[in-house]
Every structure is written in C-alpha cells, then in structure tokens.
C-alpha cells in the first residue's frame, strides 16, 4: 500500500516536472527578448536537476545524484556566461 502511494507520487512529480519543463521550453522558444530566453533556460536546468533526483528515487540508484550535481553546475556556468554576453556582447572582457 505505502509502496503504491510512493510510486504514484513519484509518477505525479515526474509529470509535473515534465510539464514545468514544457513551460520553460515554451518561454525559451517564444522569448520575446534574449533575457527571457536565458531566464527560461536557467529554470529548465534547475527543473532538469529536480527531475533527475526524482528519477534517483524511482530507481533507487545514487548515480542520478551525480548527474543532477553536474546539471546544476552546468546551468550556473551557462547562465552566468550568457548574462555576461547579454550585458557586454562578449563573455570574457
């Protein structure tokens, strides 16, 4: 019974996160401005890290944690570089 509850809420959480990622992708596609796209991309990265953690719970494997860590790291670097680019038109001054 309790395993049922857990597997259903894991499934629901995955659906919600997938929908959220859909929203973020929509904002990346529509814009309207470059900063909106970068913001949506940053959100997408965080949601992806969350989804990987939920996958970890689903499969009972710790490997997904490392993937989530790497995604979070990449998201930060990418967003910082893109913001810098929006500001000055180049990444390294």
């Amino acid at each position: 019974m309790t395993a049922m509850i857990l597997s259903w809420s894991v499934f629901l959480a995955q659906v919600m996160l997938a929908l959220a990622m859909g929203c973020a992708v929509w904002r990346v596609a529509v814009g309207p401005r470059a900063q909106d796209r970068v913001l949506a991309l940053d959100t997408f990265y965080v949601l992806a890290a969350m989804l990987l953690l939920v996958f970890g719970i689903r499969t009972g494997s710790v490997v997904y944690f490392e993937a989530a860590l790497v995604i979070a790291l990449l998201g930060f670097v990418a967003t910082a570089a893109l913001s810098k680019f929006l500001m000055r038109g180049e990444v390294i001054e």
Binding site: L19, A20, G22, R27, L47
Partner: peptide, 9 residues
C-alpha cells in the same frame, strides 16, 4: 517547480 514555470508563462 511547476508553479514557478507557470509563472514564467
């Protein structure tokens, strides 16, 4: 996370 993404829209 979903509410935040809806807010994005």
């Amino acid at each position: 996370g979903l509410v935040g993404a809806i807010g994005l829209l």
